[in-house]
Design a protein around this nucleic acid. Structure first.
Lengths: 147, 147
DNA sequence: CCTTTTATTGAAAATGATTTTCAATAAGAT
DNA sequence: ATCTTATTGAAAATCATTTTCAATAAAAGG
């Protein structure tokens, strides 16, 4: 299936990125990135630890934090915020810049937001600010959680 | 000055909102909301505590948290997120829905974002999600911090 | 005013998430 | 096969936030 391939190739490209940057391919690390690469949901450190422990039972929560830190440095994962539960991670935004999160199950949908460039320029003109970054997140219900 | 009036009237309307909702006007509370109402920057609990302590030295950090909680319940303040420093508060979004934050000094600029409704509808159609909320934040440099 | 009621307070303890320390281990180079 | 050193897990430390609780002070009623 196309979906399977996409997620597997993400896992493989992350492995390559780790190697290319001189990081060792350890079992704890591989367990963590495998889960995150193959998930389409935003996951926090502790949920990730839970899931990756099935893969590698000796896994410590500390290693989850450490792996996330490195993945974030390499821009492979992105931190997302919600009002309540605040630190979750998703596979990084490669090209497509924005995301929508299902409030119920955390499932993420990526979309491109070229439409807001005009808005940004307008706001820059009015405010005198220089915009360096923008952050657009939509929240709602995914098709499965609606029904 | 118009700016002074705007911030002072925000302070007064917050006082009224607290009274209308049966909250007592205590010194700790007044010190906290005075600082936040009259600030145009996103402030976190500890910075707020620092500043409000000048107003009322006996102020405890606990009271800052408790006051923020109530203000949030009353929708008088809004929680904002940045990648690093994650929980800061600004005066609530009354009507205008979006904000831009200066990365350097935290100064907030509000703007309306009607322009993204079209985008949201498009994303809904493609994804099958039902969008219930959206979150647009711009980051950059305010005029003072550019020069 | 003065008293009374009770929401609110600050200090201290508890919690929860994240980070640091450190000796032991295992990845990958030689 | 051995060596080097990045990486590990456990435990301790740190940091933000919340809870507990007895003392206080707002504001309502006399």
């Amino acid at each position: 299936m196309a979906e399977f391939d996409r997620l597997t190739s993400r896992y493989n490209s992350w492995i390559k990125a780790l190697q290319d940057n001189g990081y060792r391919l350890t079992q704890p690390r591989l367990a963590v990135i495998k889960v995150l690469a193959q998930s389409d949901q935003a996951l926090d450190a502790s949920t990730l630890h839970e899931k990756a422990s099935e893969e590698y039972p000796a896994l410590s929560l500390v290693s989850v934090y450490r792996t996330l830190e490195k993945m974030e440095d390499l821009h492979l994962v992105t931190r997302v915020h919600r009002n309540e539960h605040c630190h979750a991670f998703v596979a990084g935004l490669e090209g497509h810049q924005h995301l929508m999160i299902c409030e119920q199950c955390g499932k993420v949908y990526y979309f491109s937001g070229d439409d807001i460039h005009g808005l940004i320029e307008k706001v820059e003109a009015f405010s005198g600010y220089q915009v360096t970054d923008h952050w657009l997140q939509l929240f709602g219900r995914c098709p499965e959680c609606i029904s």
